[in-house]
Simulated scan of single mutants.
Amino acid sequence: MKILIADDSRVMRQIVIRTLRQAGHGGHEIVEAENGREALELVHTEAPDLVLSDWNMPEMNGIDCLAALRAAGSTVAFGFVTSEGSDEMRQRADAAGAAFLIAKPFTPEAFDDALRSVL
């Protein structure tokens, strides 16, 4: 399985990768993007099975990336890993077609629960 991690913070991308391993989801091929625009391009060139995206990023945010993917007909599984965990954000993510939203700070258990629905 190939997982695309989109976050403008390199450190946060590494934390997400580490948490995936801790949740028992290590061993997957990982592709990284620094913003939503790069993630959008990588979905087309790398064909990941899952996108884990931050919400707030420069150039293109996560929700706009998801909307662009869905508008282009992409059905790639997409989940948010973000500090934006309000009910409103969760509703927006769900309405846009996200499979889940994991709010920071997160645990390996939260990752495992969310990923079980898409793996």
Rank of each mutant, 00 (worst) to 15 (best):
M1L: 09
I3R: 02
I3S: 02
I5H: 00
I5A: 02
D8S: 01
D8R: 12
S9L: 03
V11E: 09
R13T: 04
Q14N: 10
I15T: 09
V16L: 08
T19N: 05
T19F: 04
R21P: 00
R21T: 06
Q22P: 00
A23N: 09
G24A: 09
G24V: 00
H25P: 03
H25V: 07
H25F: 14
G26D: 02
G27H: 05
G27I: 07
H28Y: 10
E32F: 07
E32M: 08
E34R: 10
R37Q: 15
L42D: 07
L42S: 01
V43E: 09
H44V: 12
H44A: 15
L50P: 01
L52D: 07
S53N: 10
D54L: 09
W55Y: 15
M57Q: 08
P58S: 10
P58D: 12
P58W: 12
E59H: 14
E59L: 15
M60Q: 13
N61I: 05
N61G: 14
I63T: 07
D64A: 04
A67C: 10
A71P: 05
A72K: 12
G73I: 10
G73R: 05
S74P: 01
V76I: 13
F78Q: 03
T82L: 12
T82P: 08
G85A: 08
D87H: 01
Q91V: 14
Q91P: 05
A95M: 08
G97E: 11
G97R: 12
A98W: 13
A99T: 11
F100S: 01
K104D: 12
T107Y: 08
V118S: 03
